[in-house]
């Protein structure tokens, strides 16, 4: 693995705060770490540790106050609004805790919203099979269970085969069994398509499936380590 691949995603002295004056709160206080291309990186931390803010800045939907993020050598701070959009369009897939599906589009159409953005999208029917949603492809999101909705969300993110898949508490709203199914799906996708996965969670157990675990607290990196005892998502327990 080249240095570029090792430092595919670089977070350098990243700072972010909200509010002003006495009410100002520093959420990220100079964060540093890198994520290698194709690995699953799990960001662990309690509420308020800054993990979602970090994910939003990586996703280009929020700005840092200091430091920078680079992806494949490109610094997000240097990008114009238009380039940032292109960056999200070409390189990122996003999976949210609450799925964020478009309610008036059916399963297939929600996935097509992602496919439209790619010059070489994955085959949607094949992906629907992979996701186990083929039979549900004409259903609206509100006709699906939480797990099924999250699968659609993953499908929408992955259909354009992004370089990085950002997952913000993807199992946060799901039950145990469904959560494991979703994690397994993410793992399978990572293995099948080789996307870099950055997953934010407060569930310590999920670290087991990660290649790389970063623990955050109070806006800082408390630990940044490789997981040498990686296990399959199917074997995770909590």
């Amino acid at each position: 693995m080249s240095d570029n691949e090792k430092n595919f995603l670089q977070i350098v002295d990243l700072k972010k705060g909200y509010g002003a004056g006495e009410t100002r709160q520093e959420v990220l206080r100079g964060m540093n770490f890198s994520v290698a291309k194709g690995e699953i990186c799990v960001l662990l931390g309690p509420s308020g540790s800054g993990k979602s803010t970090l994910l939003n800045i990586i996703g280009g939907i929020d700005n840092a106050d200091g430091g920078y993020i680079s992806i494949g050598g490109d610094k997000l701070q240097d990008m114009s609004e238009k380039r940032l959009t292109q960056y999200r369009r070409k390189h990122l897939g996003y999976v949210f805790q609450l799925y964020n599906l478009i309610g008036n589009l059916n399963v297939k159409e929600n996935i097509e919203t992602g496919a439209y953005l790619s010059d070489a999208p994955l085959d949607i029917d094949e992906l629907l099979h992979t996701l186990g949603l083929y039979e549900h492809r004409y259903k609206l999101p509100n006709q699906l269970s939480g797990g099924q909705q999250q699968r659609v969300s993953i499908g929408r993110a992955i259909v354009k085969n992004p370089d990085i898949l950002l997952c913000d508490e993807p199992t946060g709203a799901l039950d145990y069994a469904t959560s494991k199914e979703i994690l397994k799906l993410i793992e399978d996708i990572n293995q099948k398509y080789g996307n870099t996965v950055v997953m934010v969670t407060h569930n310590e157990a999920i670290r087991g499936m990660a290649d790389h675990v970063v623990k955050l607290r109070d806006g800082q990196v408390r630990s940044n380590e490789r997981n040498d005892r990686k296990i399959s998502a199917a074997d995770l327990e909590w």
Partner: peptide, 13 residues
């Protein structure tokens, strides 16, 4: 608004 915001996140111009 949510849907529009979402497709913006996805990278729609």
């Amino acid at each position: 608004e949510n849907a529009i915001s979402m497709v913006k996140i996805l990278g729609y111009q």
